[in-house]
Write a protein that binds this DNA or RNA. Structure first.
Lengths: 241, 241
DNA sequence: TAGATTGTTAATCGATTAACAATC
DNA sequence: TAGATTGTTAATCGATTAACAATC
């Protein structure tokens, strides 16, 4: 397995999910380094900053081709831009938000998305009181107009911040009208065809993970306090429901 | 390695992160099954519902002890409650929110958290115009009062929805005043001592992951269209910066 | 050239899946 | 009892780390 230098690129396939999840973080750190006016960085310096191994950084980046140079390291701006391209941040991504509640508004108002090419085209809600109000320069439309809007406008991404009860059916409307991707904040797993990309943000699950770690940590402290006496507890084998 | 039946519980250690991340999802599905009035379920039925392998379900659950019964499966309510305990949802978790912007408000207003024991004690912001306004029954206080508040109240979790520029210093105030955990929505990695639990929600990174998958998928389609002609491209070896 | 640092292979570690004996 | 299904071990698969030759 030597000498696959020339190919190695067009593939664009088979990159592991774990690697992809790390790219935005590299991108963030590189952006900060650029702002600091730095020009180049070695994998080992970056690894120290990011608290990952240098090996992982080199391995990750090499999934996409050789971005560095022996004896020099990585050019920060070049790498930043390349990762941006890999992430599709060099393209415009027309986007709509479903749900004009606090979460929908928070996302609409976040300017960072715009800066990265995520362009907000519309906001939809079912509450007639919100019709026509302006959020981040975009007027709220009634959810009934969604299908027509999708037919008339090229929309790639729909942000789903509706309550669980509505989210499922609305996802169907999105799919039926050719949506490409759904950024799902509703507490359910969407059932969509495989050509529709779904990225879930399940906030309550994130908070539960935090809660677990909190609990876990507390128990560890208690165990240290107890020192011995770890007998007793748990004898409930053989229960029948 | 036979017969470690009696112990197997007090440990509470060494559970892999991947398993923990899956627990909230099990919890959610079990809750829904309960609402549907179901009493028991086998790992293979659950695996079909959740699109994971039955083996993984059994393996995951057995990290915490034997919750099932041969020939019967798992009692849904029992398992639901046990996972709840593992996640620490049987305990109250006093919580404050830093930042009364849209995101802070969205989280404050979400009733699901309360239901799971996450009790909102305070909301803090630096904008004097917001002082005293009431969000979900809690008055917004000035950020200057934070340290004193933490001294006078038992607060476990701080939700950080401040802009990046402020988040770092405020995290330090939290740590200095004994916070146990931070749910971090700011776009930076917090530098806190190891006894403070941090759970990050980096929304922009999530959106970039979506963007990657979108891009990726599009390219796959194009490749199909092209069929052949995959020569050319990429010859940029040997560049010097 | 000598030194630095990548790209890349090999070794290790961890997580998932398969299989089946134990047991309800 | 026979059938179902777990708990658990072993096999596989994938991801991370270590090491070093290639090369700028």
């Amino acid at each position: 397995m030597e000498g696959h230098k020339g190919d190695g690129f067009v593939e664009g396939k088979g990159i592991s999910k774990a690697v992809i999840k790390r790219l935005p973080r590299y991108y963030r750190y590189l952006g900060e380094l650029m702002e600091d006016g730095m020009e180049r960085i070695s994998s080992s310096d970056l690894s120290e900053k990011m608290h990952v191994t240098a090996s992982q950084i080199r391995q990750d980046l090499n999934n996409f081709g050789g971005f560095g140079q022996q004896g020099y390291g990585y050019n920060i701006q070049f790498l930043y831009e390349e990762i941006g391209k890999i992430l599709g941040l060099d393209k415009q991504h027309p986007m709509i938000i479903l749900g004009a509640g606090n979460l929908g508004r928070a996302l609409a108002n976040y300017t960072g998305f715009e800066k990265r090419g995520f362009k907000l085209l519309g906001i939809f809600d079912s509450n007639p009181q919100l019709e026509g109000i302006c959020i981040h320069g975009v007027q709220v439309q009634m959810i009934g107009q969604l299908a027509a809007f999708l037919q008339e406008n090229r929309v790639e991404i729909a942000v789903l911040t509706l309550p669980k009860s509505r989210a499922g059916e609305m996802a169907q409307v999105l799919v039926d009208n050719g949506i490409k991707a759904i950024w799902n904040f509703a507490h359910l797993d969407l059932d969509v065809p495989p050509h529709v990309i779904v990225e879930n943000v399940h906030l309550s699950e994130s908070l539960m993970t935090l809660s677990y770690n909190l609990n876990e940590h507390q128990q560890k402290l208690e165990q240290k306090t107890d020192a011995k006496g770890s007998e007793s507890e748990h004898a409930s084998k053989g229960k029948i429901f």
